[in-house]
Simulated assay, not measured.
Amino acid sequence: MVDPLRRDVLVHRSIFVGVALALIFLRLLPMGSAAGSLPGPDILLCLILAWVQRRPDYLPALLIAAVVLLEDLLLMRPPGLWTALVVLGTEILRSRIALTRELSFAVEWLFMAVLMMALFLGYRMAFAITFLPQTSFGYAMTQVVASILVYPGVVWLSHLTLGVHKPGMGEVDDKGRRL
């Protein structure tokens, strides 16, 4: 028999993989790719950051790396660059979870905005150092701003529909450790 806490973690991990695959599939569809259109937000990044902020036990680093690497390969980005940056960002977030858990949502949103901006600048810097062609700064910045603006909606939807919430004061994980 599977422990209910362990089952909850496994269910949420499989839900995350399913939602991530659906989001990657939607990004692969040729919709809205007309010249001059604005880029959409990176909803997968918002989802990863929201889940790691709320329940870091649901998303281990290897699962994040596998999903983002798959996205890198399917979207024909340099394999591993965005993956490494996202894993680094989530591990920074995970290491500060005790400090950020009790913050208000406005401060959390600001922290996520700074983190998304740092990931964006690190990605652009890696492209600049290696002299790879990249989109214009303003166009790429529009995607980051859109991602920052969509973050509260992703948090609300994942809480409302998927039950991903910040743990309560006495809540413990499957090994009896405080969350």
Rank of each mutant, 00 (worst) to 15 (best):
G122E: 04
V17L: 15
G89Y: 03
R101N: 07
Q134W: 05
T135R: 08
L74M: 00
T83C: 08
P167N: 04
A98K: 11
R101H: 13
V144Q: 04
L73Y: 08
L44P: 10
L103G: 04
M76K: 13
I129F: 11
I97P: 01
S37K: 12
S147N: 00
D57L: 10
P39S: 08
W51S: 02
L132V: 12
P60I: 04
L23Y: 14
L103K: 11
L160E: 01
G89S: 13
A128V: 10
P79A: 11
L26Y: 06
F120Q: 05
K175N: 09
Q134I: 10
F137V: 12
L85Q: 00
I129W: 10
Q143C: 09
L149A: 10
V114T: 08
L119Y: 03
M117Y: 06
V164S: 00
R7D: 14
R6E: 11
G138N: 08
V164D: 00
G168I: 00
L28M: 14
G176W: 07
V86D: 11
I24F: 05
M1S: 13
I48Q: 03
L73A: 13
E71F: 08
V9R: 15
L115M: 13
L74A: 01
V67Y: 00
D42K: 14
S14V: 15
P60M: 05
I129A: 13
L59C: 05
L88Q: 07
A65D: 05
A34N: 10
T130W: 09
I92D: 02
T90L: 01
G163P: 02
Q143R: 13
G36Q: 12
L149K: 01
L119Q: 06
P152Q: 04
L99P: 03
P60G: 07
M116I: 14
R178E: 06
V172P: 03
L47A: 14
M112K: 08
L132T: 09
R96C: 11
P152L: 06
A113N: 09
L73Q: 10
E91F: 01
L74V: 04
F105L: 08
L47S: 15
L69K: 05
R101S: 05
L29S: 14
A22Q: 15
F16S: 01
L99F: 06
P30S: 01
L47N: 10
M1T: 13
D3S: 11
R101P: 01
F25V: 15
P78S: 09
V68E: 12
E171S: 05
L29F: 14
A35T: 15
L119C: 06
F25G: 15
L157R: 01
L49V: 12
M141R: 03
T130E: 09
K166A: 07
V52M: 03
D72A: 03
D72L: 03
L81F: 09
S147I: 02
R178L: 15
W109A: 13
T83P: 06
L119F: 03
G170D: 12
D173V: 03
W156N: 01
P56G: 08
D57R: 14
L81P: 05
A61Q: 10
A22T: 15
L85S: 03
